[in-house]
Design a protein around this nucleic acid. Structure first.
Length: 487
RNA sequence: GGCCCGGUCGUCAAGCGGUUAAGACACCGCCCUUUCACGGCGGGUUCAUGGGUUCGAAUCCCAUCCGGGUCACCA
């Protein structure tokens, strides 16, 4: 059996859209799940849109998510070069071959003329004005230096049918097909043309791309046919959609929020979680109950027939949940390393018991950037009202809170070894001595220590992190607040 | 507008002629708990509509409706 070869062919725009990333992922998975090769090819035929450093963004992203390519501009390979601008001279001969065979022709129409062909809505294609220019006329125009492009001659009647691995058989009337440009007036090939030539030369077996290309696929096939080449297997992917403000959906774009890989990382999503999530957008495993996958597991589970046909709405909430799952699974030391920048944001260079923090935070934080907001009260005690001391479930009231706090202060002043287990034993013992339920004692302690109702940990953890001196100071403050409120 | 594709809970989805129509996120209850969470348990008239075909349809066919994509010297 022929080796499966797929290719990721991005344009260097400096931005990696999640849709593109998902295409790369599926291309990688299709190849790797069948022991094939995954190729990276840079499509920079649009000289007007070149962006400095944009190819680095592509390398970096692929590396970060672990989609290692077997061949590409940076690693080489048997079918290079892998950058289209470096292959520029290779395309024209193929186009000329088509002209000689009567399958393509020179077109001298100006851009102005072409634009005048569009209707009010910008719709309307080329009228094949130059398709049958007499040979002498072509020669004359060529010699006079008139700018030209090369167009492919589409059949005027009949229809073209092809089979897509996910959408099945699709038929398009040939009269719907425009005489597409193969070589642009700047000498560069168009995307469509370069794609076919390169995919063939690089022995690509599966062409994987978004289904916005579905209707133009016959043009590709006609090209393969014109050259007498084997047509690759087409795998068109359902689009990723975003929800608009008015409730409708459309192709995911910047107005829907973070859509670039880098933006998502910036927003606090882990690369592994992003990959895992987008793998499930438009594909489901045979065992559809598993949702958490490493790249390796995806490679083992991936099957083309699990790709769905209908577009999928990108759900940030589910991604967030999944990100939290990855955070919870992390070994504690790894977690602390990832969270450290955020810890520093709160505590500066002060040394804290990071383990206690990790224990509090790891099971509840969904995205690391939430940390500073959760921990702000450590840095400075927030302003709060004495009403926070009231909690029905804990049986905490304005009346018993001062009693509890006073007792706690007395008791805790005696503690030398200021650590969670010691504080824990002491306080629970105290509650027993006082003859109240744990909550009744711990509620006011936690409120006084944190100054806010919701905290990322319990009273003991907060006290431990605060340190003895600051803890007692805050409890004292809480007590005063209650006493003034009582008067 | 022409052409192409799609339509199972709010979202991602399984399903491939016979199922009590899985699962996950979100949501709502309850339990646990020193708070919020986490965790546990439970909840929801979801097969776009109308016609066929069939003993039997979410699954096959047709129509309608809705949604999306595409009609560039962009990829």
């Amino acid at each position: 059996m022929k080796e499966v070869r797929t290719r990721f062919a991005p344009s260097p725009t400096g931005f990696m859209h999640v849709g593109n990333l998902r295409t790369a992922l599926y291309e990688y998975l299709i190849a790797k799940s069948q022991g094939g090769k995954f190729v990276l090819r840079i499509e920079d035929t649009d000289q007007e849109r070149l962006v400095e450093g944009a190819t680095d963004v592509i390398y970096r992203t692929l590396e970060e998510v672990g989609l290692t390519h077997d061949e590409g501009p940076d690693v080489g390979g048997p079918y290079g070069p892998y950058v289209q601008s470096a292959r520029k001279d290779l395309y024209l001969p193929y186009a000329k071959q088509l002209i000689e065979e009567g399958k393509a022709y020179y077109c001298f129409c100006s851009k102005e003329r072409l634009e005048s062909l569009h209707d009010a809505n910008g719709i309307g294609g080329y009228d094949r004005h130059c398709r049958d220019l007499p040979e002498e006329e072509v020669k004359r125009l060529l010699e006079s230096g008139t700018p030209w492009v090369i167009r492919q001659k589409m059949p005027l009647e009949g229809s073209t049918t092809f089979t897509d691995a996910v959408f099945g058989e699709i038929t398009i009337e040939n009269c719907e097909l425009e005489d597409q440009i193969l070589i642009k007036s700047d000498g560069y090939p168009t995307y469509n043309f370069a794609n076919v030539i390169d995919d063939h030369l690089m022995h690509i077996t599966h062409v994987v791309r978004g289904c916005e290309y579905l209707t133009s696929t016959p043009k590709y096939n006609l090209l393969y046919e014109a050259f007498g080449w084997d047509v690759p297997t087409y795998v068109h992917l359902p689009l990723i959609m975003g929800r608009n403000e008015d409730g409708s959906v459309s192709k995911l774009s910047k107005r829907h929020g973070a859509t670039g890989f880098a933006d998502l990382v910036e927003a606090g999503y882990l690369p592994e979680a992003i990959v895992n999530y987008i793998a499930l957008l438009g594909w489901a495993p045979k065992d559809s109950t598993q949702e958490l996958f490493t790249l390796d597991e995806l490679t083992k589970a991936f099957r083309i027939d699990g790709i769905s046909k209908s577009p999928a709405v990108f759900d940030y909430e589910k991604l967030t949940w999944m990100n939290g799952e990855y955070l919870k699974k992390m070994p504690q030391d790894v977690y602390i390393r990832h969270a450290m920048p955020y810890f520093k944001e709160v505590f500066g260079e002060a040394e804290k018991d990071w383990t206690v923090l990790a224990e509090m935070l790891q099971p509840r934080v969904l995205k690391l950037p939430e940390i500073p907001g959760l921990l702000g009260f450590f840095k400075a005690l927030p302003e709060y009202g004495s009403d926070l001391f009231v909690n029905k479930k804990s049986k905490a009231t304005l009346e018993n809170a001062p009693v509890m706090l006073k007792a706690a202060i007395e008791d805790l002043s005696q503690v030398e070894d200021w650590r969670v287990p010691v504080l824990h034993d002491n306080l629970l013992q105290l509650a027993q001595t006082l003859g109240v339920k744990n909550g009744t004692l711990l509620w006011p302690v936690r409120i006084a220590a944190a100054g806010q109702k919701v905290t990322p940990g319990g009273a003991m953890e907060i006290l431990a992190l605060l340190g003895k001196e600051e803890s007692l100071r805050r409890l004292q403050l809480g007590l005063q607040k209650l006493e003034t409120a009582a008067q």
